[in-house]
Computed example of a mutant assay.
Amino acid sequence: MDFTLDETRQDIAGLTSGLLSREVDFERPAGARGYDEQVWHALGKAGLLSLALPEDLGGDGLGIGEIATVLTELGRAAAPVPALTLALGLLPLDRLGTPDQRAWLLPDVATGDALVTAALNEPSAPLTTEPKTRAVAENGSWLLTGVKTQVPYASAATRVLVPAAVPGGVGVFLVDPHAEGVTVTETSLRLDGVFVSEADQLQGVDALGTMHRFAVAGAVALGDGALAGALALTKEHIGTREQFGRPLATFQAVAQQIADVYIASRTVHLAALSAVWRLSSGLDPEPDLGIAAYWFAEEAPKALAICHHLHGGLGVDVTYPLHRYYALIKELSAWISN
């Protein structure tokens, strides 16, 4: 099977990579919302946040495959932006949102002016299919009560997609993280009788399953790029750093270790591409999605440990970018595997 990117995705990858090389400045402090808003708005201005939107909302009518390409490049650059929200918020809102919800939120998400994320994890219950958070009907509206954990950019979000148990199943609701009854603590969300209207409920069959598939596919695509970026950085280092008058790369032990990182990276890449391709083609993405998630969570942190080892003390220098890849991979692997 040929997993070479088609011309459209090659163009998207090139556009994203070029923009990030110009815009990312790691010396620029994060904005008030916890990320580099300048880079995020630049991505929006370039049309990279609106790829999956339908044409009537100013998008290109593309999907998870093209968004995954953007995510991979964001990971490759370790860009300090809320990348995962594209899979957690934008894609499920576009798929499951009502016409009014989509028209209200998606154009601002596409420009970078609004942020939508999702609360898929609960205490001791990651990616739960049976949320303990409950939605109780009251006078034509809903009251939500429960606790969500590991909610990326919860405090910066315009809305959070919150799955909750409803009579007969699971509903997904748009919740304002600053509404009365909502307490945000870092990446945790506590809901105490939070009022949401009927207009805040998303529609669609298997809404929670759709959100889970988009979330995991987006995470492995982002992680694929991060691992590739760390590999490239380490290859450059051992190719130019000398010991005993020779580049580190010429030592057999070093060559064997970087080969292990390469194998891990290429395997994650293949598994992520396969899972995303099946998902974008309307096919069942399992077991490919599970394999990609498992391999990334199991092998990527080990590969980063090797990268750190090959860098020596430089790897933990705050002025050197390797620690950014380590932090991103650690966060993603914990999120996927928990």
Rank of each mutant, 00 (worst) to 15 (best):
R159L: 13
S141K: 09
H309T: 13
R213V: 10
L273W: 02
H308R: 11
R22Y: 07
P80L: 00
G146A: 02
A271N: 14
W295H: 14
Q150S: 14
H178I: 13
A137W: 01
V216G: 06
E23L: 13
E242G: 09
A119D: 07
I12N: 00
G225H: 00
L53R: 04
L248W: 09
T128G: 03
A164D: 07
G193R: 04
G223Q: 02
A68G: 04
V24C: 05
G44K: 01
T111H: 03
G315T: 07
R95Q: 13
A305F: 08
Q203V: 15
L20K: 00
A264I: 13
E198V: 08
R28D: 04
A78L: 08
F173W: 00
S197W: 14
M1A: 11
S155L: 11
P177T: 08
I291N: 06
E198I: 07
H237V: 12
A165G: 10
Q243Y: 15
S274R: 02
T98V: 10
T4S: 11
S17R: 11
I67D: 05
F296H: 12
L314S: 06
S197F: 14
E299W: 05
V194G: 04
A32S: 14
E55M: 08
L332S: 01
G97E: 08
V261T: 10
F195D: 15
T85S: 11
R159F: 10
D60H: 14
T129D: 15
I336Q: 05
F214T: 04
A275V: 11
G63N: 08
N338S: 14
L88H: 04
D2H: 13
W104S: 09
A78G: 04
W104R: 10
I329A: 03
G14T: 14
L208A: 04
S197C: 08
V172K: 01
L283H: 03
D288A: 12
A226V: 06
I12T: 05
D94A: 14
R9I: 08
T250K: 07
L5D: 12
Q256Y: 05
V254Q: 04
G290L: 06
L202S: 02
W104D: 13
R266H: 12
A275L: 06
V254R: 07
D100K: 04
P54F: 08
Q252A: 15
E331H: 15
V147M: 09
V254W: 00
T98W: 01
R134L: 12
M211Q: 05
A119F: 06
D284W: 00
G312V: 09
V216K: 03
Q257V: 11
F26G: 08
T128W: 09
V136W: 01
P167L: 11
G31K: 05
E37H: 12
T85W: 07
T117K: 02
G75H: 01
L84K: 05
T240W: 00
L233Q: 09
D2T: 13
V170G: 00
K45E: 15
L62M: 11
Q252N: 11
D94F: 09
L231K: 06
T158C: 02
L93S: 02
G229M: 03
D192K: 10
L332H: 02
D2V: 11
S280I: 09
T16F: 01
D113Y: 07
G225M: 08
V316A: 11
G58I: 06
H311S: 03
G229F: 02
S265P: 00
T210E: 11
Y325W: 05
G75Y: 01
A199T: 15
Q256E: 15
P285Y: 11
P301I: 01
S124V: 15
P54G: 05
H178G: 07
V147L: 13
P167S: 14
